[in-house]
Structure formats: structure tokens, C-alpha cells
Computed example of a mutant assay.
Amino acid sequence: MSEKDTISMQLVREALAQTCPHGEPDSGLLARAGIAVEQLHLPEARVSAESYARLWRLLARRCNDEFFAMDPRGLRSGSLAFLCRASMAQPTLAAGLETALAFLSLMLEDLQPSLVRQQSLAEIVINEPRDTPRRAFTYFTFWMIVHGVACWLAGRRIPILAIELRCAEPPFCDDYRVMFSQNLQFDRPRTRMILAADGLDAPLRRTAEELQRFLAEAPGNILVRYRDPASLGRRVRNDLLQLDPGHWPDGEALARQLCLSASTLRRRLAEEGQTYQGLKDSVRRELATVWLGEAELAMGEIALRLGFADSSSFYKAFRKWFGCNPGHYRALVQARGARVASTSAADAKVPSDLPAR
């Protein structure tokens, strides 16, 4: 694992919130995880992903709960191993994922997930009691388990088009966006993850030896998507988000803005596993999913905003990025909002056969 893979100390505090309810973190446990207790409350402090993974395992063993006591029933130690073993025995990724979600529904009391396929898209929806939403950390821990296992079953990273959550946006979202998707939507009526469905019918061929390696390295092998927020790649990406794609500088101009030579810019990005073109494509993907959720923007306008010559070019690029039709994605994200608005309006309307008060 790279030295640059780090986790916000805020996520360490979140992990401790349920397991140390009296606000007194176990300094001995933190020391075993390689985390300095004196840095625990420093706003900008970060820890290595390896230390966070070690803390995860220590807390799970201490609580006998691989879900950090965030559900009345929880996931007893060994749940992840059983989930993976049952899922890998299925013929396809879809069947394996449905088995994993069925197991989580059986084990957990409040979070009841299900897989729904919508043409070229799939969504994993969490049904839960209609009371106060859970903490963002609870939802993201759930997604970390589900998405991490799904990627392992598939043998590749499965792109996430969007994640919608019932809770309010927390003040520390950078790690979540790097880990999952830049397209995180909060204060939504339901919590769900939207994926392309093109690979769900792929056969599963995982072996017992591969399972043993995966479990021995978990959850560190799931956390490696985290990157240093102060990296050059993150800075370039954030700068691109502030500009219209039509005004993005070319590589030479970007290097001059950063007071670097073009070769130094390429080398430093390469050291982080990045390229300038890759960063531009990443921002385009993010903007595409966000703008497709805005009903007032026509498909042609989105294409032009992103720098494509026409809707057809945008359509082909979107299918290449996510393996699904942009029209299907737009219909899925907007249909749920329309149904919620319609339901709210109906609930607010006074029935005509009731007397006015």
C-alpha cells in the first residue's frame, strides 16, 4: 500500500464513536493500530490506510461486530468470510451480489438492501425504518463492505455512477468521494448506489485460495482507493472543477500555471498514478452524472458543456465510461424524484370528503 494512501482522522473518530460511547478512546488499542492518540482531535490529521484497516480489525474483534455496533443486531465476527464464501459459489456476479445482500438483510435489523435492475443500470437500495437517518459513516461503511466484495467477486473495480443518502452531508466528504464516487447526493428520500448493469451477468470464478488472500488483506485491500488530498492530482482536479470544460488549459498551459515544466508535470502526475487526460476524463464523468440529474438541462446542452461536438459523441463516451445509456441514467435518477414529489403532494392534499377545519 502506498505511503500516500491516507484516511482522515475524522473517520477514526467515527469508528470509535459507537465502540467508545463514553468518549474515552482506548489509547492502547490506538497504539496497536499505529495511531497516535494525541492527534485524534486534530482537525487536519490523517492516518495511513494500513493503520485504519488495523483499527477496523481490532474494533471488530473487540465488539464481536464487523459493523461497529451500528445496527441492533450487527455482523458478528466471521460474517464477512461467510458472506464472501456464499457469494462466490453463485454462477454470476448478479447472483453473488444478491446472495450477499440477502445475507446482510438477514443479519441486520435496520438496513435491508436489495438489488434492482433498470435496463442498462442497477441500483442497490437500502430500505430502512422511516425515522431519523443514520450517520453518513454508517451508510458508507455498509457501501464499503458491499462494493468491496462486489469488486472482488468481479475481479475489477465496478464504477459507481452515483450514491444517494438520506442523511445530511457531513463536513468531511473528501475521503468518501475518492473511495466511492464524486457524485454523492445527500438529503435524498432513499439511500441507494447506482451502477452499470453490463457486468452483472459475468460468471464468477473465484477460488478458495483467492478468498483466503482477500480476507487476510481486508479491509486494507478495499481502502486503497483513498489518496492524499494534498496531492498534485487532487489540486489539478479541483482546479478543473472550477472551470467550464471549454476553458480547460492544455498540458503546456497547465504546467506554466503551476510554475512547472511540462515534463515535470507529467512525471509528478505519473508518480501518483495519474495523467492529465485521465484527470480531465474523471471530471467530465463527474459533471455528466451531476448534470444528467438536472431536468432543465437538455442532453445536447450537457454534451456541449462537456466539450463534445454533439449528443451522439457524448452518448458514445458515456457508454464507454459507465457501460450504460445516459438516457437510462437520467430516467432512473429523475423518476424517483418525480415519484417522491407526487407522493408528497398527494399527502399534503386534503381529501375532498373531509370537512375543512
Rank of each mutant, 00 (worst) to 15 (best):
S2K: 10
K4D: 10
D5R: 13
I7Q: 01
A15Q: 00
T19R: 01
P21R: 11
E24F: 08
A36N: 15
Q39P: 09
L40K: 02
E50G: 09
R54N: 15
W56G: 03
R57S: 15
L59I: 13
R61D: 15
N64G: 08
E66G: 02
M70P: 01
L75N: 01
R76K: 13
S77M: 07
G78R: 06
F82C: 13
F82Q: 15
S87V: 05
M88E: 04
M88H: 04
L97T: 08
A102M: 07
A102K: 14
F103H: 08
L104Y: 01
S105Q: 10
S105Y: 02
E109H: 08
E109A: 11
D110Y: 04
D110R: 12
Q112R: 13
L115Q: 02
V116G: 00
Q118N: 14
S120L: 05
S120Y: 03
I126H: 05
P129C: 11
R130M: 11
R130E: 14
D131V: 13
Y139D: 03
F140A: 07
M144A: 14
H147P: 00
V149L: 15
A150P: 01
C151V: 04
W152F: 15
A154L: 13
R157H: 06
R157F: 03
P170V: 10
P170Q: 09
D174L: 06
Y176S: 05
R177T: 07
M179F: 09
M179R: 15
S181W: 00
Q182A: 07
L184V: 08
Q185P: 02
Q185F: 11
F186L: 12
T191V: 08
T191Y: 07
R192H: 15
R192L: 15
I194D: 01
A196N: 03
D198Y: 15
P203Q: 14
P203S: 13
T207F: 12
T207K: 10
A208L: 12
A208W: 05
E209F: 10
E210P: 00
R213N: 12
R213V: 11
F214Y: 15
A216V: 05
A218D: 03
L223M: 08
R227Q: 12
D228S: 01
P229V: 02
R234C: 09
R237S: 10
D239F: 06
L240P: 00
L241M: 12
Q242A: 09
L243H: 04
L243F: 03
D244M: 03
P245W: 02
G246K: 00
H247L: 12
D250K: 05
G251V: 06
A253C: 05
L254Y: 09
A255D: 07
R256K: 14
L258K: 03
S261Q: 08
A262G: 02
R266F: 03
R266L: 02
L269E: 01
E271V: 09
G278N: 07
K280D: 04
D281Q: 12
V283N: 00
R285W: 10
A288N: 04
E294D: 15
A295L: 12
E296Q: 11
M299E: 11
E301V: 04
R305T: 06
S311L: 06
Y315E: 10
Y315C: 06
K316L: 14
F318Q: 09
G327A: 10
G327H: 11
Y329P: 07
R330P: 01
A331L: 09
A335M: 08
G337N: 06
G337V: 04
A338N: 07
S342N: 09
S344N: 13
A345D: 12
A348E: 13
K349G: 06
K349F: 08
L354P: 00
P355N: 12
